[in-house]
C-alpha cells in the first residue's frame, strides 16, 4: 500500500488541531500580547498611526495607580468591584446550593420547570434581560419595584433606585441582576452532583431516620465539597471579568456610573466609552485583571485536579 502523507499520525493530528490553534492564536495569544504592548503606549482614541510606535514605559500603570489612590471615582471602582464580587459570589454559591437542594427534594416534574426557568436569565439576550430589569427598577411609576413599594405604602413618590447617592442602591441592583444570571451555574452543577449520589446512601440515611436537614448537612453537603470549591472559584473568576449586563445598566442610567462600574467595566468604558477613549490606560487595567485571573485560574485548575480528569487515549495507533 502506498504511503499517503495525510495518513501519518502527526499530520492528521495537525489537521485536527489547526483551526482551533489558529483561533486561539488570533483571538487569544496575539491579542494578549498586543494588550500588554498597548499598556506601554499612550494609545488613545484608537489613533493607531500616531501612538502605536510610542513607548512610554510604565506611565499608564503609574497613572492608574495614582487615579486609584487620589481620584474618588477611580477608587470607587475598586470598592464597587470588591463589594460586587464578594456579595454576588456568596449569593451565587449559596443560592445555587439552596436551589439545587430544594429541587432535589421536590418532585422531578415540578423541579424541571423551576430549573429551566432559572436557566433562562443565562440564555436570554443581554439586551432583553437588561430591558426586564430596566422596567423592574424604572424610576417612574411604571417601575415594578416602585409600584409595589408605593402600594405597600413604603414610599410616597417613585424613587430612582440606582441613582441615590448612597452606594447601596446601585450595588444592590448590579448584584441582583448578575446574581440571577450566576445562580444557575451552581444550581446545575450541584443538582447533577446530587443526582449522581448513589441512592442506597440516601435510602440508608432515611431508614436510619435522618430528617431532610440531617441528610443535607451530614451527607449531601459533605459529598459536594469538590463541587462547592469548583463553583466558588469558577464564579469568582467569572464575576471578576463579567461586565456586559452592568454595562447596559450603566448606559441606560438604571444605576449611576460612579457606583455601578466594576473593574472589568471600567476597562471597557475607558477603551470604548463615551468621551475620550484611553486605550493605554484601559490596557494597563486589563493587564492587571489578566494577571489576577491567570493566577486564580491556574490555582483553580490545579487544585481541583482537572489534570487528573484527563484520561490518556487508549491504543498505539
Amino acid at each position: 500500500m502506498k504511503k499517503n502523507i495525510f495518513s501519518t499520525n502527526k499530520v492528521q493530528l495537525l489537521i485536527f488541531l489547526l483551526p482551533a490553534f489558529l483561533i486561539v492564536l488570533l483571538f487569544y495569544i496575539i491579542p494578549i500580547i498586543i494588550t500588554v504592548y498597548v499598556s506601554f503606549t499612550p494609545m488613545r482614541n484608537w489613533n493607531i498611526d500616531k501612538y502605536f510606535n510610542v513607548i512610554v514605559g510604565l506611565q499608564n500603570y503609574n497613572r492608574l495607580f495614582s487615579l486609584i489612590t487620589r481620584d474618588p471615582v477611580a477608587r470607587q471602582v475598586v470598592m464597587n468591584t470588591v463589594v460586587f464580587v464578594a456579595i454576588t459570589l456568596a449569593i451565587n454559591v449559596l443560592g445555587g446550593l439552596g436551589l439545587a437542594l430544594a429541587n432535589f427534594f421536590i418532585d422531578e416534574r415540578v423541579s424541571t420547570g423551576f430549573r429551566t426557568l432559572w436557566l433562562l436569565p443565562r440564555m436570554t439576550p443581554i439586551a432583553v434581560y437588561g430591558l426586564l430589569w430596566y422596567y423592574f427598577f424604572h424610576g417612574s411609576s411604571i417601575g415594578m419595584l416602585n409600584s409595589i413599594a408605593m402600594s405597600l405604602g413604603l414610599i410616597k413618590k417613585p424613587i430612582a433606585w440606582g441613582q441615590e447617592v448612597i452606594p447601596w442602591g446601585p450595588w444592590s441592583i448590579i448584584i441582583i441582576v448578575n446574581g440571577f444570571v450566576g445562580v444557575s451555574f451552581g444550581m446545575v452543577i450541584f443538582y447533577s452532583a446530587l443526582k449522581s449520589i448513589p441512592r442506597e446512601l440516601i435510602i440508608a440515611a432515611r431508614v436510619d431516620g435522618a430528617s431532610n436537614w440531617k441528610l443535607t448537612t451530614n451527607i449531601l453537603i459533605p459529598l459536594l465539597r469538590w463541587h462547592l470549591l469548583f463553583v466558588t472559584t469558577w464564579q469568582l473568576l467569572s464575576l471578576l471579568t463579567t461586565y456586559a449586563h452592568t454595562f447596559l445598566l450603566v448606559e441606560w442610567g438604571v444605576v449611576s456610573r460612579t457606583y455601578g462600574q466594576t473593574w472589568a467595566l471600567y476597562v471597557f468604558n475607558t477603551a470604548f466609552g463615551r468621551g475620550e477613549q484611553d486605550q493605554g490606560l484601559a490596557a494597563a487595567a486589563a493587564v492587571i485583571l489578566v494577571i489576577f485571573g491567570a493566577i486564580l485560574g491556574w490555582i483553580t485548575v490545579r487544585a481541583l485536579g482537572f489534570n487528573k480528569m484527563i484520561t490518556k487515549p487508549k491504543g498505539d495507533i
Binding site: V24, L26, F27, Y28, I30, P31, I32, I33, I34, T35, V38, W46, I48, W234, L237, S238, L240, T241, Y243, A264, L265, V267, F268, A271, F272, Q279, A282, A283, A286, V287, L289, V290, G293, A294, G297, W298, T300, V301, F306, N307, I310
Partner: peptide
C-alpha cells in the same frame, strides 16, 4: 495534551475584556 486541555479550560475563564481592546485594534488595522 493534558497541559493543552488545562490551558483551554483557562482560556474559557480568561477576562474577555482584556482581549477585546486588542481584538478591536486588529479589526481597525
Amino acid at each position: 495534551r493534558s497541559l493543552i486541555m488545562q490551558m483551554i479550560l483557562l482560556l474559557h475563564a480568561f477576562p474577555g475584556v482584556a482581549l477585546i481592546i486588542a481584538v478591536y485594534l486588529i479589526f481597525r488595522a
